[in-house]
Write a protein that binds this DNA or RNA. Structure first.
Length: 570
DNA sequence: GCCGTTTTCGGCCCGACTGTTTTCAGTCG
């Protein structure tokens, strides 16, 4: 039983309680607990064993008992009972944008609607417009909501989100009355995936901004349009929200729209304790604004040091900011090189020379060319002979460049028994060895863990790449006993990669923080397959920052001679 | 259901937009 499984059960309970019209604060308690369980870096089973569940914020004696029941028996009587009253289909209906618990309940009680399909049929047949509060427009919105749900308004990766946001920001900059503009929301917090794009604007002419925004040619559908706030859907079904605010409130609004929701709630509670009121317009004492123009001013007025967006998740950052003890997080400019780049010797698209040129342009001091190993035929893995030729090419280039070190590396495959795809005599010759799993993802947790552990124990393996194998929208992370892996990494001096590729971002933020707790060290790599993708490193940096990592945790912030001391002896 | 240098009971973040309603409930973030 994983933390996410427990969180999922609590969320389901919250949904059912909402439909039943239960006490909203009780519902929020389940949601809060779900979120904190998911965010905690400690394994829920361990917390049960050590009787430390109530250390999780939002978990009291009642929820602790429920967690124990879930972890020990695999199910929860309370939920089974709830499910008897509310059909699953009704809970699913809450996923339709525009349908909340009240509407779902109304549709169920008055018309016996039990799921999304039935709702769609009844709506088309004109049978739901007789209900109180539901007329033509509402029916239209429900049908549109169902369409959105069907098309799967999923989450997009961080790069896609960045590109869309930049596009709209640049468009809006054409408005001459526009003063400030910033993407906010989970994108500004650099969350691994983003659901919609929030953009904050300050302007003397809010209506003009709203008109211009909602009439852009890329807009397919206007979901809402008011004098200061509008939401649209792009042709790719991405929701973009723009909010206009005046300069005096810009910092407060940026803080508010950056979130997270949980971070905001805690800040408001803090403000209340000080007898202040916090909203998106500023921080107020007796209706007099005492801060609002900038975020820095807001945090200061709350008695906190500035909290960077990546940390704003209510994972302890506010408590540390009160004591002015927040860590100094790693920054892009700390990076001195990387180790995981594929060239056209295997499945990459750029020559080694092109990669080296790019790395030099980025100011790197070293770059490792790590192509796939022989077993990975589809990825053009290199056999012994090809390796020799590649080595010659690297040696030739080394003579040409004296301002950057070109390292001879590999991404060697870990087979289904945990054996490596190259023998030791080949690995010994490498400057740096990365090991990774590329097949056999469906093995048991125990087997998967043992494969990784065995690789870590190899005296030539320096780094484990993309540890959990997750690919957004394509593959779930594979089953792994992470604590065991982290322990072995620490013992064997094996480094863990933070993979910057937007579909991977693996390790994720929570696992980074957990691994750091075990004393593990990291490298941030791109897994670039063309030279240009070396620029993706910024996304890996953001994961590390969200994982509370500092420069000291990341080996490729060090100069090369120091890096060598952190690699295994050859 | 949680939580407490105001509290073990009585609070629990706050505002914009929509559609339906003549003043507001529902939904969303």
């Amino acid at each position: 039983m994983k933390n996410q499984d427990v969180a999922k059960i609590f969320r389901e309970i919250a949904d059912i309680l909402e439909i039943k019209g239960e006490n909203p604060f009780r519902i929020r308690a389940y949601q809060r607990a779900a979120r904190n369980i998911e965010a905690t870096s400690e394994d829920i089973e361990l917390l049960v064993k050590e009787n430390r569940l109530e250390e999780i914020p939002g978990v009291g004696s009642d929820l602790a008992d429920k967690i124990k029941e879930i972890v020990t028996s695999g199910k929860l009587k309370f939920l089974e009972e709830l499910k008897k009253d509310i059909p699953q289909g009704l809970v699913d209906m809450l996923n339709i944008p525009g349908i909340g618990p009240k509407t779902a309940k109304l549709l169920h009680e008055r018309l016996g609607i039990n799921d999304v399909i039935m709702l769609e049929r009844m709506a088309h047949a004109g049978k739901i417009s007789n209900l109180p509060g539901i007329k033509e427009k509402t029916v239209e919105n429900i049908l549109r909501g169902i369409e959105l749900l069907k098309r799967g308004q999923g989450r997009m990766d961080l790069k896609t989100a960045t590109d869309v946001a930049n596009f709209f920001v640049n468009q809006l900059k054409n408005i001459k009355e526009l003063k400030k503009i910033d993407p906010a929301g989970s994108l500004r917090r650099m969350k691994e995936t983003v659901r919609d794009i929030d953009i904050l604007v300050s302007s003397t002419k809010p209506e003009k901004v709203m008109d211009y925004f909602t009439k852009l040619p890329e807009v397919k559908d206007v979901l809402a349009k008011g004098p200061t706030k509008s939401s649209i859907l792009t042709k790719d079904n991405i929701q973009v929200d723009v909010r206009v605010i005046e300069d005096a409130s810009y910092g407060a609004a940026l803080m508010y729209f950056t979130g997270s929701k949980e971070h905001n709630i805690k800040l408001r509670q803090l403000a209340m304790k000080k007898g202040l009121k916090l909203n998106e317009y500023g921080l107020f004492r007796d209706n007099k604004r005492i801060a609002g123009r900038t975020e820095a001013e807001m945090y200061k007025a709350l008695g906190l040091c500035y909290i960077v967006p990546e940390l704003r998740e209510d994972r302890g950052e506010i408590e540390l900011a009160l004591e002015k003890r927040l860590p100094k997080l790693i920054e892009l400019s700390d990076i001195k090189g990387e180790f995981h780049v594929h060239s056209n010797w295997s499945d990459g698209g750029s020559s080694i020379e092109e990669i080296v040129e790019r790395a030099r342009a980025m100011g790197y001091e070293y770059i490792a060319i790590a192509d796939h190993s022989q077993g990975l035929k589809i990825a053009g893995g290199l056999d012994r002979n090809k390796l020799k030729e590649k080595r010659k090419e690297i040696d030739r280039l080394k003579k040409r460049y004296n301002d950057i070190a070109i390292l001879y590396g590999t991404e060697v495959d870990i087979d289904s028994d945990g054996k490596l795809d190259y023998p030791d005599d080949i690995l010994r010759e490498m400057d740096v060895v990365i090991a990774a799993i590329h097949a056999g993802f469906k093995q048991s947790k125990e087997k998967m863990t043992n494969r990784i552990v065995k690789a870590c124990q190899n005296r030539y393996v320096d780094i484990i790449a993309h540890l959990t194998g997750r690919l957004w929208g394509a593959r779930e992370p594979y089953e792994l006993d992470l604590e065991k892996v982290f322990k072995v990494c620490k013992e064997t001096g094996t480094l863990l990669e933070i993979n910057s590729f937007p579909q991977r971002l693996d390790l994720n933020d929570i696992n980074c923080r957990m691994a750091k707790g075990f004393g593990v060290k990291f490298v941030i790599n791109t897994d670039a397959h063309i030279a240009e993708q070396l620029g993706l490193i910024k996304y890996g940096i953001s994961v590390a920052r969200r994982g509370w990592l500092t420069r000291e945790d990341i080996i490729n912030t060090l100069p090369l001679d120091e890096v060598r001391k952190n690699l295994k002896r050859r």
